[in-house]
Amino acid sequence: MIELANAAYSYGGGDILTELNLRLAPGSFHFLTGPSGSGKTTLLRLCYMELLPSGGQVNIFDTDVRNMSRDQVANTRRRIGVVHQDCKFLDHLTLAENIALPLDVSGRDAEAELGNLNELLSWVGLSKRADALPPQLSGGERQRAALARAVIMSPDVIIADEPTGNIDWEMALKLMKLLVELNRMGKTILIATHDLNLIRNVKSQTSARVLRIQNRRLQLAGADL
């Protein structure tokens, strides 16, 4: 699905990440951890083509990202759901409209898929907040809504960047439960987090690999987890 082969990313002459080797197999669950500023978000951005590698290769769905046209990038992104750390909502649209945005931009009829949308809102516990604007939502509601938007296109891969960063423990567990459910449905999951307790909690429910970024390189985390 997503494969990094000796990939590197540098900015302003300095290496941010180097010798990255990773293969996300279909249906796998991966955590990405590391200290703040280690490059977790940069690696995720390489995985959904917001950044292009400065060295090595990044293949997504068997295509080298450097060979993709702009339309191909757009089409590929429809197969990858992303939960951003800051959610990236459009503040002038309602919650329901924000969640349906990937349907709209891909030309699918959001009206026709209203049933799916309502089901999704109910799944993330936001049925009653459909008409609220993003600034009116709490941190937890925003993260759950971001997850709903990430999965509305039924993507093959879900990438989440610190999805529990701004919410309390109870809400974080709820969100993780939803992600585990998605993984059980066959979705490939990649989550960046520095919360080791959360990782332990999920590992008790499902089989997950934990990767760590250290010294700009990607390593398999040890038994301390």
């Binding site: 959904y48 917001e50 702009r70 339309d71 757009a74 089409n75 992104r77 429809r78 992303v82 951003h84 990236k88 909502f89 459009l90 945005l101 990937p102 931009v105 891909s106 938007r149 296109m153």
Partner: peptide, 15 residues
């Protein structure tokens, strides 16, 4: 910001 979010959720340039 709107344009960048639209690109990230899979909008093509023509849209």
């Amino acid at each position: 910001t709107v344009i960048s979010v639209l690109r990230l959720v899979g909008a093509r340039d023509t849209y």
